Simulated scan of single mutants.
Amino acid sequence: MAAFGTVFMPQMIQARFADNSWSESALVPSDKIELHAGAHVLHYSSTCFEGLKAFRHEDGSVYIFRMDANIARMKQSSKLLNLPDFDESMLEQMIKDIVKEYADETPAPPGSMYIRPTHIGTEAAIGKAAAPSMSSLLYVLLSPVGDYFAGGATALRVLLEEDGMRCAPHMGMVKSGGNYASALGPILQARSEHQADQILFCPGGDVQETGAANFILIDGDEIITKALDSSFLHGVTRNSILTIAKDLGMTVSERNFTVSELLERAAKPGTEAALSGTAAVLTSVGTLIHNDQEFKVGSGEPGEKVAKLRQALNDIQWGKSADTHGWLTKV
């Protein structure tokens, strides 16, 4: 089976901004884009993206999950990168149009259609290191994906990193390629030296996020996760899981907490931890690595409450339980 996110639909949808206006959107081949070698994005990283999914229900209909939240976050990223502004309705229609075009290709559960809107600065101006791109390209790619847990759900090994951080604090709320690139070196080092799957960045002992996901701790009926601030990405899956947890009667504590508290709580029987994100939904963390020591989270195995929360979210996405929060958009 192809690796997650490596198969693409043959067409994407795009719109270009130039001379202070947006073009009409159009379907074009997805295997190439027209870009000058001096394009702003290639030199000064004026790029942001989103990740969301469309799901096929039992009656064959296709629904996009939390499109409004992802569009709002992409609009925010574009603003923080000083890319040209766009109307939410324009990107919403582009997403609907391309998903509708390939609705028949949307896999049945546990698969889905992964949607990747991307916005890049295209102005050919290598003298603009300290100025924004005045032109841009907005496009939406589709990638049919299978079950992220096709090989069976296993608990992750996560290295706690107190010295470094995922990205510059003022870039935390931008879903930009540069942030992922900056975290890649430490992640590869953690895999090589500690056989870790991910790094949980905890600058100064403050538990924040990993290179590509938010972190939650479950102690009894309480979910603990870092309070939202401008230093890290506000995950749509994170928000969905916390909302479902409240629906299930759990206590949600969004607050700052330290590595010391994390390790103390993790040692308790029944404690669970997880990473949340669009691709994996909610993935159990079984081992924390700190100062060359390994600490099990609870039993060290995938947790029951993590599985329950993930299933509750999947059931809404797949149309198996009521969408009481209005998260689904039919195409």
Rank of each mutant, 00 (worst) to 15 (best):
G5R: 05
G5L: 01
M9Y: 01
A18I: 01
E24Y: 02
S25R: 10
P29R: 08
H36E: 08
G38K: 05
Y44H: 12
G60C: 06
S61R: 11
V62H: 00
N70D: 02
R73F: 05
Q76C: 04
D87P: 01
Q93C: 01
I98G: 00
P107G: 02
I115G: 05
H119K: 11
A131N: 09
S133K: 14
S133E: 10
S135T: 15
L141C: 14
L141V: 07
G151W: 07
G152R: 10
A153P: 03
T154Q: 14
L156A: 15
L160I: 15
E161V: 04
E161H: 12
E162H: 00
R166T: 12
A181R: 02
L188I: 07
A196Q: 09
G204W: 12
T210E: 06
I218A: 10
I223V: 15
K226L: 10
S230L: 05
F232Y: 14
L233I: 08
L242M: 15
I244M: 08
A245I: 07
G249W: 11
T258R: 04
G270Y: 04
G270K: 05
E272L: 08
A279W: 05
L282V: 10
T283C: 13
S284F: 03
V285T: 08
F295V: 06
A307S: 14
A312V: 09
Q317H: 07
D323F: 02
D323G: 07
